[in-house]
Nucleic acid binder design. Structure first.
Lengths: 147, 147
DNA sequence: TTTGTTGCAAACCATTTGCAGGGGT
DNA sequence: ACCCCTGCAAATGGTTTGCAACAAA
């Protein structure tokens, strides 16, 4: 049984909640791909795999997965984006304003600097997020107006 | 006439749009305070100042101000937060998970590092945002569970 | 006078929730 | 059995939009 499932089951048991078929299907689908998705993407993918799960349950389960640290939520323009956490080490994002592509990066020196900033403000960091918006290699070469 | 007003007028003229009373009142209110606000805060403040502007116009004007670079939008949990730009140099945010306080910081070394990351990915940065979530000095000392 | 703007109310849309029936322990 | 969970459909809440009256240019 994969690590993420063990972790989810432990979390549910510890908090007096139940391990249901719907929850297992959703977790499985979240960990099937290694990309960014929104609640509706996930709902549609579950449909494709003949898992009868309602949108409501998708939302409720994503919230559980977020609380137990198996999923990370990024605030998007209108809808939230999610990504799974296990086997997907911490990183930040480069987001293309034209094609929407998301690149991931991790820079230890930036992370170290952030800790220094926190020290300066006596701030206790729990988490952070960082997005760089601009144009990816492909979209730059298209000479498109940015309006 | 303040710089922000000149800039707004220029932007409107250049794009064939009109300088209206509502737009001027909204800009004035945005620049009256030096803090973070959401669309509804702004609407209510305008009410207090007897400026008869509808919520719809507040939203429409915030969008204009964002497009011409007089206002910056931060994606919040549910609603968007805004801050004015002129006289308020670029910075990022420390956000307290308990009391919601927002501290601002600016670290040139982090900024420089971000440019390096972009170079590495051949990415052309337009803007970026960075949030560090955690507990501010006051809230740490309250020994409160984080649940 | 022409054309963009406003207020209103309705529409939108992602997300949340109440409830009655169903499923895990 | 007990209590939690699910699906459904309705509610929510921030934001957007169609339209007729109105105000810049």
């Amino acid at each position: 049984m994969p690590k993420e499932e063990l972790k989810f089951i432990e979390f549910l048991r510890n908090s007096g909640q139940k391990v249901t078929l719907a929850r297992r299907k959703i977790l499985e689908e979240v960990y099937r791909h290694h990309d960014h998705f929104n609640a509706d993407d996930l709902y549609l993918r579950l449909q494709d795999h003949k898992a009868n799960v309602s949108r409501a349950t998708v939302y409720r389960t994503l919230s559980l997965l977020e609380r137990c640290g198996l999923v990370r939520r990024l605030e998007g323009e209108t809808r939230s984006l999610y990504e799974h956490v296990l086997g997907h080490p911490h990183h930040d994002h480069l987001i293309c304003l034209r094609c929407g592509k998301i690149l991931e990066f991790n820079n230890p020196r930036i992370e170290a600097m952030q800790l220094e900033v926190c020290k300066e403000f006596s701030f206790k960091m729990v988490t952070h997020s960082q997005q760089i918006y601009g144009f990816c290699r492909k979209c730059q070469s298209k000479h498109v107006s940015q309006s």
